[in-house]
Amino acid sequence: MKKTVKKTGRSRVASAVFIKDLRIEARSRVVTNQVLPFAGLIMVMFAFALDNDDVLQRVAGGLIWLATIFSLFIIVQRSFAIDTSDSALDSLRVAGIDLSAVFLGKSIALSLQLIALDVVLIAAAFLLYQVQVSVIGLVLLVTCVICATTGLGFVGTLYGGLTAGTNGRETLLPLLLLPVVAPVLIAATRATEAAFGSGGAAISEGWAWVGLLAIFAAVFGVGGSLAFGPLIDE
């Protein structure tokens, strides 16, 4: 049998992985049924703990992104549990599949799940914390969510892949991820506060932060594509 399988394009592999991850989520609903309520609860608990509308409006941006990052840890572990439970990740490696394409597919699927999560969290902020947003503010907010979740998807997949299947991954993942996502937490929080006008922040201030989020996403998109293969290979 001399006809060897031809190398498949990177985008084809990435889209196959992307569709696979989202289809599994659509069917198992782990994120929908477990992570969304968890993140929503964080928002409600803060409302109880702070119990002051002015304070809540002021800190709404920070709470949204803290809840996002805590949820990120759970979603990342779920994302790799899919691939390691029956050693499918091993099979991908044995088959010599382009791992940077796997990285891109998984990252984008992860980002989309985070976007869905953030839509719910922002809606909760409107309902529970009475924040307000103008039309321009909304444009800023949407751009901020897209840039921030893209960056989080990249770093989450990168470090999730490294810790997948290792002992003590539940604690190692946050240890590795927290310092890396600190810029996202700071930048996304400031941009969101600018969009909400919390504490008299001007919307124009927000765009500089969105720029930082975009740089972060670009750096880890490129860095992750290069590093993912060497990191997860034996």
Binding site: R27, S87, V94
Partner: peptide
């Protein structure tokens, strides 16, 4: 790798 196929103890399938 792309030219060998390994079937180990695990099946490498997606359960869902």
């Amino acid at each position: 790798r792309s030219r060998v196929g390994l079937l180990g103890h695990a099946n490498g399938l997606f359960q869902d």
